[in-house]
Write a protein that binds this DNA or RNA. Structure first.
Lengths: 340, 340
DNA sequence: CAAAATAGCCAAAGCGCTTTGGAAGTCTCT
DNA sequence: AGAGACTTCCAAAGCGCTTTGGCTATTTTG
């Protein structure tokens, strides 16, 4: 059932039927009802390919997926996707993942924009002065950044959590508990979120005249193994840190293992706080010692990004509004006063 | 730059240019070269929307993503995606994720097929007599199942790992080591993979005249917490199992925690084997006691599924070929002879 | 009451490709 | 040399929608 057939059985022109269906004003309300009714009865669904060719709109949102043998997709992605999908489903939006060579995402961005494959894109894990951001900005496709970049002379729309504030709070708590030697096991420090977290920790320390030693900060890919290694190296020093702030739950698993291996205890010898993106399959309260966390649901972020993308596509949102979500600090058993 | 312009500057018809570009035989080889050359020089890329409308082919593969507030996307998904993306990138295939209400995926399948939004789809985590499979089979769109179903009167193309064989081997090893009370912490037993794994364990036990007691099998969603709970319940029995086979690394984390909480040890009191899908961020060799596993890279499976989907789209693969990958049994420190 | 504005509808021209149904020109064969 | 068979190209008709530019009634306005 296509438009031609439908309009023919209604004895109307395609123009009128199309307009009736798409809510244009120049059609009699009664005619519109007739059309809507017939469309529903016959299960008419406009062919998206045709509509696309005519309008240039695809009804999909895009994401360029960096791939390659050496590239691992972040497990956070799947939770973000849950949220995104949740919203997208309710609004009949599809998501297209365009795999790209991790060393050359630009080509792919250009392609999907030139081909009008998607109406909007989102960008995640941005770095300072991220090229993708500049590119997408000049290409003129609606977009939202999940996270933040820095060092541009233009503004852009984003959704981020208050990473600096979160880690500031976490560090401040530890300092108040008497800890003087803090360490930070961070994610890849070329990504903005890691920079912000480091900034937060440093600021909290500075407020009490403390500093974050060069050797007390580790920046690694967020795997269990890297958490373990970083923690071991930190704890095997002559004067090991008495508290660690850690950028992910998965790394925290490694930290806990390292502490055990060394015969130390949490929170007796070491206080630990980690950031929790809220995975259904790994919860901080179920750690051997319940883990204190800075908590922010990445899933909700996914839903919000989808919502804002939809708003931008339909012109309801404009400009470069940045949105920063506060982060909860949830204190559990893994923190205590500094050892004497 | 579109076809019209290109053909005009070559003083050729659109027909000829189109044919030259798409490798049709009825065009002079020299003309073809000229065309190809000009196309490349001017960076001509056929508009996919137009091509789509004309041919009905989209150049994308589809996946219906079950969503909902209560639905969690499996973290395995992201690894599978890595592999899929790896292949897809090399062949300029995009992947479209169509979020669907988890209780009504049918509507979405029908929509994407009717709209010809994708050239092929894959289905994951199938159950016995899975409705999606029957549906997709009648809808006539090329597809591949990742995993297997059962109880159909038709064959279908799939890629699966030898779950039964893998768990058979694991259980057999444990039996040989003298274990008589085995337990299985399985995934959702409405999914085929879980059924196959259970079958494998039972078969190994049966071969030695043993059985898997009703209470010695747990079927749960694969989270750390569920692994913990299942293990606790098993180990707190009067006659606890001396060996556990576990369907995922994440659940194994919980099992390890439970064992510790109860003051027992691995492998002294309990031998443990788990299935490993090979995540970059959590490795069995890094468990407190290196974990024995049945190992199969879900990432490679993703790449293979993409490859076969591409083959089916272009007509290179036909029929209902099933492909079953063997699974490695990797023995590490977490297994030992049964305690006296 | 004539002129101007408005409401409601339609025919037809795109969107940019593929594919059908020829039509020339060139070769081959008797 | 003329008939048939290739080879190589083209004009034009889709694919199914949206949108432009008009056209006819009907209503409003001065």
């Amino acid at each position: 059932m296509n438009l031609k057939q439908l309009s023919h059985m209604l004895s109307l022109s395609q123009t009128t039927v199309s307009r009736a269906l798409n809510g244009y004003p120049e059609v009699n309300e009664e005619t519109r009802r007739r059309v809507m009714d017939a469309a529903k009865r016959h299960g008419y669904r406009p062919n998206p390919s045709a509509r696309r060719l005519a309008t240039g709109k695809s009804g999909m949102i895009g994401y360029v997926l960096p791939t390659g043998a050496a590239v691992d997709i972040d497990p956070h992605f799947v939770e973000f996707l849950s949220g995104l999908g949740d919203y997208a489903r309710a609004h009949e939006l599809d998501l297209v993942l365009s795999p790209a060579d991790a060393d050359d995402e630009e080509t792919t961005y250009r392609r999907i924009v030139a081909n009008r494959q998607v109406d909007a894109v989102y960008i995640s894990s941005p770095r300072p002065a991220d090229k993708r951001l500049a590119l997408v900005n000049t290409l003129g496709i609606p977009f939202i950044v999940h996270g933040r970049s820095e060092g541009f002379d233009f503004d852009y729309p984003y959704l981020d959590i208050d990473n600096e504030g979160a880690f500031h709070e976490a560090a401040r708590l530890l300092v108040q508990l008497g800890h003087k030697r803090l360490a930070l096991i961070n994610g890849n420090d070329r990504e903005t979120f890691a920079i912000h977290r480091e900034r937060g920790v440093r600021r909290a320390l500075a407020a009490s005249g403390l500093t974050l030693g060069e050797r007390h900060i580790r920046s690694v890919t967020m795997t269990e193994e890297n958490g373990y290694r970083a923690a071991r190296r930190l704890l095997e020093e002559a004067e090991p840190p008495t508290a660690i702030v850690c950028s992910s739950l998965i790394m925290a698993l490694g930290v806990v293992r390292a502490v055990r291996d060394l015969g130390r205890t949490i929170p007796g010898d070491l206080s630990l706080v980690a950031h929790d993106d809220v995975f259904p399959w790994l919860r901080p309260e179920n750690f051997p010692v319940p883990l204190s966390t800075t908590r922010s649901s990445i899933r909700l972020a996914g839903a919000r990004v989808a919502e804002r993308l939809a708003a931008r596509i339909s012109g309801l949102e404009e400009g470069a509004r940045g949105e920063v979500w506060p982060v909860d600090l949830v204190v559990r058993g893994s923190v205590a006063g500094a050892p004497a």
